[in-house]
Amino acid sequence: MPERLKPKKKKAKPLKQAKYTIGYTPDGKAIRKSFYGRNNKEIEAKYRAYQQEKFEEDRKQEFITFKEFSEEWLDKFKRPSVSPVTYRSTYKANLKTLNTSIGDIPVIKLTTNDLQAIFGSVSDISKSKAQKMFIIAKAVLEHAVTINLITHNPMKGVVVGKTRKSENKQAYTGEEYRQVVEFAKTHKYGNGPLLALMAGLRLGEICALQWSDIDFYKKILHVRKATTIDNHGRSIIKEPKTACSIRDIPINDEFCQFFGAQIQLDTFVIGNGSNIIMDSMNYIHRNFKYFKNDLQKKYPHIQNLNMHELRHSFGTVHYKAGTPIDVISTIMGHSNIEITKKIYVHDNVEDARNRIDFSKLP
């Protein structure tokens, strides 16, 4: 039986194309868009459907509030490009503050006066927070200009007013330092505070520190990693942010005797036996909270410092003991000495007097 020939498919006719002006750039240049169809009627129908969709979108945009617009900007442009910690602590937190004041105002109705009212009254917040809020508000509204929602950025001309005077970080005195160190040696959750007080470690470095990072024979603590939060909100271990944070810290006999005598039930120095990475926030709100409460009960006269201020105390007691500032800076993982001087060293007039040898003056 002869093979039946399959009928050849007819080639589809090429679609017709027509260009329409759909808008104009800020400098008056026409924006053209192509529409395709089998005939002019179909092309016209597609163009009309586009116009209707654009009209409805424009009406929606006309009433979009700063809160709605900023959250959309945050989700599309910042969430994919910054770390989860930066996303949460820098962008989300500062937008929340902005939205309490201007969140319900439509973007197209937001004026420079509205924004100046906020940034001119920042006496109750820190300079750092005010600057972050300023940068974020400017970026959000610049995006509104880019997509032609508004014609100009109302942040132009806004000036940040006088902010709250920054307070010096607190630090233990020499006597308090010794009392807290001895107390920590006897406490269930004392390892973390001791690593801050005796080695100047940051919280993320403490949570990531493993027993294998401590060379008891050579008396060196190796800092090679720190904890952070991934996109799923889980604690993970990564290299520190800067090269200066990767360092070797000399440790003394007291440190080696105390930590060297411990039974290593966990990979991590502050672990509880599960070999699971300690989440830094959980550590602060649970372990360190118990430690602070018990410390205050036994020594109510001692300053109630946070975890970062224990690290400050490390720098301060070393400075007062005569450790050169450049050595302190290196041990603490700072990029330059000025950071150490400005943030971690707390001098008073008597400290200054003790460092001056008046007998050598002419």
Rank of each mutant, 00 (worst) to 15 (best):
R353Y: 12
I206H: 07
S126H: 01
S280R: 11
A18E: 14
C244W: 09
Y319A: 15
N336V: 05
P7W: 07
V269H: 00
T100F: 07
D114L: 03
E72C: 01
V223H: 02
W211G: 06
A93V: 02
A130G: 10
L221S: 00
K169Y: 09
S126G: 08
A18F: 12
A208V: 06
D279V: 00
K360H: 11
D357G: 07
K185W: 01
S313A: 06
G200C: 08
C207F: 03
D114M: 03
V85T: 15
G37M: 09
Y189E: 01
Y87H: 14
G174L: 13
N231W: 01
D114N: 15
I263D: 12
R32E: 12
F288D: 02
K320M: 10
V181E: 04
S81N: 14
V160D: 07
Q296S: 09
A261N: 14
D351Y: 07
I108W: 03
I125Y: 06
A139W: 03
I263Y: 12
A261C: 05
K185R: 11
H222Y: 15
T186Y: 06
I214W: 03
I118T: 08
T323Q: 11
K16G: 12
K241T: 08
V223D: 00
E72G: 04
Y50V: 05
R79D: 02
V181H: 03
R178V: 12
K16T: 10
T267S: 11
F255I: 01
A184R: 07
I343P: 00
K9R: 15
Q296P: 00
T340Y: 02
C244D: 14
Q116I: 07
K54D: 13
R202E: 02
G273Q: 07
I214H: 06
E176P: 08
G204I: 09
G174I: 13
F314S: 01
I108N: 07
N168T: 11
I328A: 11
E182S: 13
D230K: 02
T173W: 05
S89D: 15
R59E: 15
K241I: 06
A12H: 09
S212I: 15
K169N: 13
D294S: 12
I246H: 02
K9H: 09
F183Y: 12
P362V: 05
K185S: 01
L95C: 09
L141W: 07
K298W: 01
K289A: 12
S335L: 05
R48N: 11
H285Q: 14
S245K: 01
T86Y: 13
F134G: 06
